[in-house]
Design a protein around this nucleic acid. Structure first.
Lengths: 233, 233
DNA sequence: CTTGCAAATATGTGTGCACTTAATAACGAA
DNA sequence: TTCGTTATTAAGTGCACACATATTTGCAAG
């Protein structure tokens, strides 16, 4: 047990956070450089580096080579959002998950989708509509478009038992992605599927994923009213 | 210049990601241990560790001591959300920011707020309502409650020129926090403040911040219609 | 067959060192 | 004065080594 000469990087991090909190290091101010801190805290520079890097990743410090490390003036807090597969999300709440396919077709996407997927005007896409249910009640409506050229196996996939959401995670190697959250009013169809009043405010997440520069799929997830996306900072 | 015997941890990370993408390492599968990878890739274990740790932080690998490192079966993607001060958020979009105070009072919070702040039934709180504007148009309505016992300086603060949002970031040492995103229908007052139709779907973020175990403040931010919170994965 | 303890092992972390890279400052020439 | 070059400096990264810690495995005692 490293009585006291050894400080773990977490201990250093805690000390750094304390100094920021207690305004020992003021916002915008330059903090001692790594070597200096290492000497002062009785640990190696590597350890100090690890700690400072972690704090900087949370947005409380800003680091630039040569310029040194300074306390962030406008701390842009970095929250981490977990984006699980919907089935897992529901099961984690201890609810029974089920899923039902509403429709599946190969058709021309609307302009908005075409723009997101950067596809040529007359390129047909796989369009899958499905409903995720938690404990038998509508949870989220999945409105997905898949580029069958980029994901040929999708043509064979059976989306009646497994949602595109989960099928894609399992079968398509991940790539980059883009997520947006917003709110929309429920249209008549959506209201019926989600069993809510038309015009109700729905939480929406829209995701577009690609691999390399190839767009793969875009999805709109409409959550039933009272859904909350939750995280800690 | 380290021609090729030295691999940077980013290079190792890229190689690891490639192997996961190309299914050389299949989901759920155990990957070679650090020392083995180090030998294979011709770098030190430290470097491999750095790379694997980074990938694990993104949720694509799961690591446990002794048990080894395995490819995540249900990759829970970790998105990072930046939560800037609203003024900065607006200015970053190249728009002119302004702010106007709507009301400020010390009063009894409604039950929902009391629950969030875990305050006793008859404890009065500082209640500040303000509107953030971008290019002169309503952007977000800030409905904030501050515990004046936990943040005594707030009583003296001038929230007519600087929003509580920004004042708190500048004056109150950060602490833990809790963020939730959802959607609500605009009520009559909110519709008027945000210059939208009553019943319009609004994107909401609710934040509660504390220091230690002391609740400091809770805020509801109602964004004008068409607001989108956006991030990459 | 179960329980408990010890050995083995993979990751986690710390240290000291060296070298690289980027940003600034200092300096000198046009 | 202004521009470009060079020196300096602090962070970024890599390596070899050692020890810490968690977890599994296997063996032995009950």
């Amino acid at each position: 047990m490293n009585a006291d000469s050894t400080k773990s990087w977490q201990a250093v991090q805690a000390e750094v956070l304390r100094r920021i909190r207690d305004r020992e290091w003021k916002p915008g101010e330059l903090v001692p450089h790594e070597a200096e801190l290492a000497r002062e805290l009785g640990c190696s520079r590597t350890t100090v580096n690890r700690a400072l890097r972690a704090v900087a990743e949370d947005g409380l410090l800003e680091r630039r080579r040569r310029a040194g490390t300074r306390v962030a003036l406008h701390p842009v807090r970095k929250a981490r959002l977990d984006i699980p597969v919907i089935r897992v999300e529901i099961e984690n709440r201890g609810l029974a998950y089920s899923y039902s396919l509403i429709s599946r077709a190969e058709e021309l996407p609307p302009p908005a989708v075409r723009a997101r997927l950067q596809s040529p005007p007359d390129h047909k896409m796989l369009h899958v509509l499905g409903l995720h249910l938690a404990a038998g009640r509508p949870y989220a409506l999945e409105d997905r478009w898949i580029d069958p050229d980029a994901v040929p196996e999708a043509r064979e996939a059976d989306f009646s038992r497994i949602s595109p959401n989960e099928w894609l995670v399992l079968n398509v190697p991940f790539g980059g992605g883009d997520i947006a959250f917003s709110a929309v009013e429920a249209g008549p169809d959506e209201a019926e599927a989600l069993d809510c009043a038309p015009g109700a405010a729905l939480f929406v997440t829209e995701r577009t994923t690609w691999r390399g520069s190839r767009m793969l799929t875009t999805v709109q997830l409409l959550f039933a009213p009272r859904y909350r996306l939750h995280t800690r900072i």
